[in-house]
Amino acid sequence: MQLADKIEKRRFIGREFLLWLWFESEIFEETLTTKKHGDFGFWIEKEIVLSAGKEATRIKGTTPAHAREAKEALRLGKMPERATFRLVLGERESGFFLKAEALALGALTLPAVLDDGTAPTLGELGAELSAPKKKKKGAEDEAEREADGKAEAFFDRMDLTQEVEGILQELYRDFLALRLGASWEKIVVPALRDWLAGDELDADRYRVSRDKAVAARASR
């Protein structure tokens, strides 16, 4: 198979990745785990778009994936094309949308960060705003401070961006361990079908099986 075909003819894997994220987020009560990051909050918020060919269903709301129309669209053969996620890791909270077929991030909002890596409280922000401004030393110092501030802000943004990308990468790695092995048809697809049909699903049992499959891939 040519490289172009591996890319273009398998873009549907991105949609299946989004579906799997939605499914696991729902059955694991909005808490996902990766070996590298531990537990973190992860759920769909604001919007999910499902489509098949030119037909699309766009659902907006606080928890759009819980809307009846979302699973109805899946039953009609539509797959997630794009979804907006909330990610909470420790004190840090981010939001972004993920375009399935390109695995591209959009509208990534990052938390404000202080030196110790925690977001400022409202009180701290208020104190900062009301504090008297220091007298400027000179145009040169001012330009230097501005450049330093710009660089610092950039590094903070990149650190947080890379953290979000890192989590998604580990999730994708786990997904691939399942999707490219026998466990996809054996473990994941039956669970997805039960979930979609609204049948009772033993989430703990599913977790044990999928963890085993992911660990087996990692040990290879």
Binding site: K6, R11, I13, G14, E101, A102, L103, Y172, L180, R220
Partner: peptide
């Protein structure tokens, strides 16, 4: 190489 499901998978390492 633009990111796509395959290119990301290949970057992660496929057997």
């Amino acid at each position: 190489v633009p990111e796509a499901p395959y290119t990301t998978a290949a970057r992660l390492g496929l057997t």
